[in-house]
């Protein structure tokens, strides 16, 4: 098989084709979509999703799912925002540390409960979704972090940097690159794939499933925490009842579109990045096409289901394979 053929057969190729087709179609209908400004808006829109998607991807690869990231994002954003508000004299990185570490701690709890009690992660994280949201209401006293409490340098990170690309964009792609390095070149990174591919074989190969799984949930939480800071930088406020609500579904949509299999063991950083970009393009294209923003969730839901069906047919050798096995 030639290199090009192999490239075309890769999962990522399908997503890339979808992305190019989408951009092409939208640009044909509304030529002003195809512009540097749109690219800028898309690039700006996605860091939030991208950072959290890296965590969710690792969780899905390990054959789990993390529904609580929206609440973790909210919690970390509130925690960091309260540091900014109540201790304005502290340097910015203290707030960052608080955000990321609180996210990591909440993710760690998820991992601990899932592995110790051997419970399905979907139910556990559905519980912590609610639990963390409640905690963040208690922590914040149901009060919003106002725009003038968010430090100026943090806001600027969403706008500029020395090289004219906003810092948060640079951070997001740096996180993606680091994730790629971690998953490709470290032993633990490969073990995550092994666990997801075959959870019962992994321990027989000497993989310590429990610590690795806990690590994956912790990373997912930490990245959601980082996303919380990006949220504060980009939107300039944090509201306990709004920040991060429903965010988990956007992220899961992006990751599933990116070709990460819900059955574990399959998924790549490149695919996830493309999935995030496709979702970001949809988000930006809707108003340009004059479609009401109310359609956004319906489209996300539809895309998830389509991606699932495609994933299913690919794994079972196309439609014929699916139909042949459909007998039982």
């Amino acid at each position: 098989m030639s290199a090009i053929a192999r490239l075309l057969r890769a999962r990522e190729a399908g997503i890339l084709v979808m992305l190019v087709l989408f951009v092409a179609v939208v640009s044909l209908i509304q030529p002003r979509f195809f512009s540097a400004e749109t690219l800028r808006i898309v690039l700006l829109a996605v860091p939030l999703i991208l950072v959290a998607a890296m965590g969710q991807m690792m969780v899905l690869v390990a054959r789990h799912v993390d529904l609580s990231i929206g609440s973790i994002l909210g919690f970390s954003a509130i925690a960091a925002g309260m540091i900014f508000r109540d201790y304005p004299e502290l340097p910015l990185y203290v707030g960052f540390a608080v955000g990321v570490l609180s996210g990591a701690a909440l993710g760690f709890v998820n991992g601990l409960v899932v592995t110790i009690f051997k419970l399905p992660s979907i139910i556990v994280t559905l519980g912590t979704l609610s639990l963390y949201r409640g905690l963040l209401f208690i922590l914040s006293g149901s009060k919003q972090i106002d725009p003038n409490d968010i430090p100026e340098p943090l806001i600027r990170m969403a706008q500029t940097s020395p090289i004219d690309i906003p810092w948060i964009v640079i951070i997001a792609y740096a996180v993606a690159f680091a994730t790629w390095l971690f998953l490709t070149y470290t032993q633990v990174g490969r073990q995550i794939y092994a666990i997801g591919s075959n959870p019962s074989a992994a321990p027989l190969r000497g993989i310590r499933v429990m610590p690795v799984t806990i690590l994956v949930f912790t990373l997912s939480g930490a990245l959601a925490g980082l996303a919380g800071l990006i949220y504060a930088a980009r939107f300039g406020y944090v509201n306990p009842g709004i920040t991060g609500v429903g965010f988990e579904f956007t992220v899961i949509a992006a990751v599933v579109i990116g070709g990460v299999s819900i059955n574990g063991g399959v998924g790549s950083v490149l695919g996830t990045v493309l999935g995030v970009l496709l979702l970001g393009s949809v988000q930006v294209a809707l108003p340009i096409l004059g479609v009401s923003g109310f359609w956004q969730n319906a489209i996300y839901g539809g895309i998830i289901l389509i991606a699932l069906v495609i994933d299913r047919t690919v794994r079972q050798g196309g439609l014929r394979g699916l139909l042949a096995r459909g007998g039982a």
């Binding site: 819900i262 359609w295 996300y300 839901g301 539809g302 998830i304 459909g326």
Partner: peptide
């Protein structure tokens, strides 16, 4: 029929149905 896991399918339809209600 398509033999997809109900966990993730119903997350997808959850978003879809809620989204259609919004539309």
């Amino acid at each position: 029929v398509l033999r997809l896991p109900s966990i993730i399918v119903t997350i997808g339809t959850l978003i879809l149905f809620r989204g259609l209600a919004q539309v």
